[in-house]
Simulated scan of single mutants.
Amino acid sequence: MVSHKKMTKKIVSAKVDEMYRESKHWNSCLQLINDELTFIQHLLNSYVFEPNTPNLFERLQDYQARIKRSKDDWDKLSKMIGHHENSIGGILECSDSVCDNFYHQKHEKLKVEAVNYMENFKDLKYEIFEYAGCILKKRKPNN
């Protein structure tokens, strides 16, 4: 018969594994987003846009400022996830449910922040690509 303590330790270990996998997934998504941020910054600073587009300069300035804010948020979130990953193992050293709950609440809060950031970035990226795509289409020669 398996003792209650061994069973609890097994459950906690499974939770730690799951939290670690989730944080690795967030990191993977953030690495992709970092590459996309770099691409978008290069796109916005390029000369591929039709110069006579109404409000082009203002739109590009707005997008550049929003991409910079997103990059700053990316930096903060990436650091938070890194620190969180390094501390996840602390759950295994918890001796009570208060400590255990602390780690889980911290993880859930970080999950919300990561998902919100990814959703906001996806929306911004879509908006920029939608705008850029319309302008770039104008440059195609008519056959």
Rank of each mutant, 00 (worst) to 15 (best):
K137I: 10
E119R: 09
A65F: 14
R66V: 04
H83I: 09
V16D: 05
S87Q: 12
F102P: 00
N143W: 15
K106I: 03
K106A: 06
P141F: 15
H83V: 10
N101C: 04
M118D: 02
E130S: 14
N142C: 07
G90Y: 01
I40D: 01
K140F: 13
K140W: 15
R66C: 01
K122F: 05
E85K: 14
Q61E: 14
C29V: 07
T53R: 02
K24Q: 12
V48G: 08
R66E: 08
N27T: 03
S95D: 13
Y20D: 12
K79C: 05
S28G: 02
R59F: 05
C134P: 01
N143Y: 15
S97H: 11
A114C: 09
I88C: 05
N34T: 06
S70C: 07
P141H: 11
Q64R: 15
Y131E: 04
K137Y: 08
R69S: 05
C29P: 00
L124V: 04
S70Y: 01
Q61H: 09
N142P: 01
T38Q: 06
Q64H: 10
F57V: 15
E93M: 12
I135M: 07
N86Y: 11
V2R: 08
I67H: 03
N34M: 12
F102W: 09
I40P: 00
N52F: 10
H4M: 13
R69T: 03
A65P: 00
H107R: 03
K10I: 03
Q64E: 13
E119Y: 08
C134D: 10
K122V: 00
C94T: 09
S95G: 14
E85Q: 12
E58Y: 03
E108D: 10
V112Q: 09
F39K: 11
L92A: 09
S23P: 05
A65C: 06
R59P: 00
H84G: 03
N45F: 12
K9M: 11
L30V: 02
L56P: 01
K15M: 10
E36I: 04
M19C: 11
E130K: 14
K122A: 15
K9T: 09
G82P: 00
G82I: 09
Y131R: 04
K9P: 02
H83Y: 14
T8D: 13
K106N: 06
I81P: 05
V16I: 14
N27V: 01
G133R: 03
L110R: 05
K137H: 14
C99D: 07
S13D: 06
M1C: 02
C29W: 03
S97C: 01
N143S: 15
F121R: 00
P51N: 04
P51S: 08
L30F: 07
R69A: 03
S97P: 00
